[in-house]
Simulated scan of single mutants.
Amino acid sequence: MRSGPIRPVPLILGVGLLVAVWVAPLSMWLGSAFAGHMLRHMTLVALAAPLLIIGWPWVARALALHPIAAAALEFAVVWGWHLPRAHGLAYRADAGFVAEQASFLLVGLLVWAGCLRASHPLAGAGGLLLTSMHMTLLGALLILAPRDLYSAWCGLLPNLSGQQLGGMLMLGIGTPVYLVAGLWLTSRAVNEKETAA
């Protein structure tokens, strides 16, 4: 992805999604604090972040890391915040919530900047496909867990169905977005190789 002028449509869509997920009463709409958390999380990293990177190429250039390093960093942040104690901190303390949301957005931007700006599209595809795999694994663990992992840490009544809905949102949004983008970069790499040959 080349640097260039601001692309207003994706930038406005990305900012609009950020505003929507931070203002909308997601927990009330979904009937679960955890499902609301997961919809916000997936919107930040898998929908808003790529739109912001595509819409504002200067940010993409400034944040571009090696795709595998960015994917590893996102893995650490995402899994770290989904440990029960850390999730409880983000739920119960405003400072924890701000730190969680800011770190989700930052690592989302780093992954998309690194993968879309990678000098070799296959490296970018690798970063996105690794991210798709760890999102799939975490979503599956949340769905298949035999009990609510977070309610005790958040001071809430157990809501296993809400946790399962959160896992399904992760699978339904994160997995396909990263997978399709990774496959698109793979296709681009193959086409470039064929053109060069």
Rank of each mutant, 00 (worst) to 15 (best):
V59S: 10
L141Y: 14
W81R: 04
G55W: 02
V59K: 00
P158Y: 09
R147Y: 11
L137N: 06
A90T: 06
P121L: 05
R61H: 15
M170F: 05
H82F: 13
L110P: 12
H134Y: 14
V78L: 13
A93M: 14
P146A: 08
Q164W: 08
L116W: 02
V59I: 12
Q163W: 13
M38Y: 08
H87K: 03
V98W: 11
I53N: 00
T131C: 11
P146K: 09
A49N: 05
P84W: 05
G108L: 02
A93H: 14
S103C: 06
T175E: 01
M135F: 15
Q101P: 00
A102C: 05
G172I: 09
Q164H: 11
R147Q: 12
V98D: 00
L156S: 06
A48R: 01
R147W: 02
L52F: 05
G127M: 03
A95L: 03
P176W: 07
L110S: 03
L138N: 05
V180M: 15
L44A: 07
L63E: 04
W81I: 04
N159M: 01
Y91S: 13
L73R: 06
R85P: 01
P121H: 07
L44C: 00
A69Q: 04
L156Q: 13
V180F: 15
G155Y: 15
A49L: 04
M170E: 13
A64C: 11
R92L: 14
W79M: 07
Y91P: 01
L156V: 02
L142T: 02
I68H: 04
I143R: 14
A62I: 03
L160Q: 08
A76H: 06
L63N: 08
G139V: 12
M38P: 04
A93N: 10
L138C: 00
L130S: 08
P84M: 12
A64Y: 12
I143W: 09
L52R: 07
T136C: 09
E74S: 13
A140S: 07
R40P: 02
G162K: 11
A46I: 00
A102S: 14
L63F: 13
A118R: 04
M170Q: 12
F104Y: 08
E74A: 09
W58D: 14
P121F: 07
M38K: 08
G127Q: 10
S161T: 11
R117Q: 12
A71L: 06
L89P: 00
A76I: 12
L116N: 01
A102N: 08
W79D: 01
W153E: 15
L52C: 07
T131H: 07
G127P: 10
Q163L: 12
L89D: 07
P67Q: 05
L128G: 03
I54Q: 00
Y150W: 05
A90C: 09
A140D: 02
G155T: 03
R147F: 06
A69F: 06
A125L: 10
L89M: 12
L65P: 06
R92A: 14
G88C: 15
G127A: 01
R40C: 04
A93Y: 13
R85S: 02
F75C: 05
P67E: 13
W58S: 15
V78K: 01
L171F: 01
G162S: 08
E100I: 00
G139F: 12
T175G: 00
